[in-house]
Nucleic acid binder design. Structure first.
Lengths: 244, 244
DNA sequence: ATTGACCCTCACGTTACGTTACACTTTATA
DNA sequence: TATAAAGTGTAACGTAACGTGAGGGTCAAT
């Protein structure tokens, strides 16, 4: 079951150039390449391609997709479930946009009023500002590495260090001095390495996400059971007690 | 009610740079610009922006959006209805992808079988190969102009010529020699100017779309009542009688 | 043996912004 | 009213994900 480029391209509805590109950047390397240079894609290649397209549909950058797929901890089933969830969210956004259209139609006819915010319901993807952070956590280092490539190895390690440090403290109270010291480190880490400046409120909000969104929870808990819960509490305490 | 760049950007969830860009390419020019160079956006600007974002969501290139919006025949209501329809289609694609995910999950567990085509259900946008053509028709020249700019003027004219020629024949039978000559010209026109090669079957299918899809119908009928119906029949006849 | 449909590798082009860099304005605050 | 903070302006180069030829081999069928 070996397929040539065009066959694959036609099957999945992408261009030959795209397959070439994916090969070039190492995202999808054909299982076999003849000595005349012909690419032959296997069944497994097709399955990887399916994954890639799901990620792409959700607008993940290719570099990130590559990292995620190549991570040893990558689990296809889990990924599919995540995709499912994100697709549902996307569908909801579309529904919102349709609603906005209907409202606008009425508004034009003078049948109703409309606030400026309403006029843009559904577009606001920045409506969930943690999506970005979710990507970072989902396959922790994966995304980090996709950024500046070199010093990030150290950065990824640092990140893991902090997680591990915190994981050792999960049976001490989140308000304890050690816990707060570690959380302070986490706060500073995020502010110096994500490009994002976190206000205390945002930091607290992020903490909530750790337990509200299972994507966060499952990934954080890989470093130790209950870590997400623990971090969330510690982050809340930190935020509430540093508003000088 | 004058708004500055950042206010607009924050309201609709895009970047300031994007607004600058839209201004630079003449897609959205702020209603007022102070002598210090500050951009001030009006209510009307916001409404245009809403339109732009709808088009963008449906992946129309900016150049095309610009042409469409600036066409005198542009009707906001009609546009909104088209957007609505396309969004519904997009939602359906998402549903298909979700179904594909569910199937894949079962497939992995060995609970069912799955063909290669099934694995990519929902991605295949080229599944509706007429979308492209729909864009071309929707604001006929608008899209054409967006391509190579100069010789396209001639091409657009040619296109209109053929439409007009056919419109004059709507009360002759579609099998008549004149009608078939004109349709042949149309067939050749499409094959030489769209980059797409139309097989006879595809040509016939396109003809069906002219009456099946109202987007086509309304636009074609602008050249004469019943033209879409007429062309459809002539195209079918042409296809059926030219299979060597 | 030939031909038409595919395949390859460059390599430059394109779209829609992101990202500094650097200077000027406006607004909030002391 | 001075001064800082926040916002805004114009360059101008960078980037992601391919598109689009150019020029030249390869394969399967006739």
């Amino acid at each position: 079951m070996k397929m040539k480029v065009k066959e694959v391209a036609d099957l999945v509805g992408i261009s030959v150039r795209t397959l070439h590109h994916y090969d070039a950047i190492g995202l999808l390397t054909p299982e076999e390449t003849t000595d005349t240079g012909y690419r032959y894609y296997s069944e497994r290649n097709l399955e990887t391609l399916q994954q890639i397209l799901f990620f792409r549909e959700l607008e993940f950058p290719l570099k990130e997709i590559k990292n995620i797929l190549s991570e040893p901890s990558f689990d296809r089933q889990q990924a599919l479930q995540l995709h499912r969830k994100l697709l549902l969210e996307k569908r909801e956004r579309i529904d919102q946009m349709i609603a906005t259209i209907d409202k606008t139609t009425q508004y034009i006819k003078g049948e109703r009023d409309m606030s400026n915010e309403e006029k843009f319901q559904g577009f606001n993807f920045n409506h969930n500002p943690y999506e970005e952070e979710a990507r970072k956590l989902w396959g922790a280092k994966a995304v980090e590495q996709s950024n500046t490539a070199f010093e990030n190895k150290a950065v990824g390690e640092k990140m893991n260090d902090i997680y591990r440090k915190l994981a050792h403290l999960t049976n001490t109270p989140p308000e304890s001095a050690e816990a707060q010291t570690a959380i302070t480190e986490w706060y500073e880490f995020l502010n110096t390495h994500t490009g994002h400046h976190y206000t205390l409120e945002a930091f607290k909000g992020l903490g909530h996400m750790y337990i509200a969104d299972e994507r966060f929870t499952t990934n954080i808990d890989q470093f130790g059971a209950g870590l997400a819960q623990f971090m969330s509490e510690a982050m809340t305490f930190f935020a509430d007690h540093n508003k000088n």
